[in-house]
Write a protein that binds this DNA or RNA. Sequence first.
DNA 1: GCCAACGTTGGC
DNA 2: GCCAACGTTGGC
Length: 152
Amino acid sequence: MQYWLMKTEPDECSIDDFRLAPSRPLQWDGVRNYQARNFMRSMEVGDQVLLYHSSCKNIGVAGLIRVAKSAYPDPKQFDDKSPYFDPKSTKDKPRWDAVDLVFEQKFEQVISLDKLKGCEALVENPLVKKGNRLSVIPFSEDEFQAVLALTK
DNA sequence: GCCAACGTTGGC
DNA sequence: GCCAACGTTGGC
């Protein structure tokens, strides 16, 4: 079992999109950063994922989702109508991967970035470091549990 | 809307 | 391989 945090702009995909389709996994595509992609490739079914809302009114961790399907080639890289189209990607050698994620839990309140920054267990985590742009971040179990504890 | 920080691209 | 230019991320 591994733990992760994934960022999303809630206008694009929010915890409510997952909550409103409780048993239907959603495809997480469009990741176009190699480090984030490599983390996605190491995800396993059942891994727990903290869902972080960025660039919005209420920034922070909004809920919990779970890996329902491990990495497979992101279909959008082949779709020349998609903003995520990558002309350099081929079916033989796809560059980018997607995973499927499914709803687990929506927190009663978003765990604010201020709270996360104040959390001792997270001081070394890239999430709270200035200038961090990584959209898929591995969490240790301790870090994960520390975030869950902030919901109480 | 601003802008610092970062990753990627491409010329050399 | 270097590095300037550029585009994007993301908090404020």
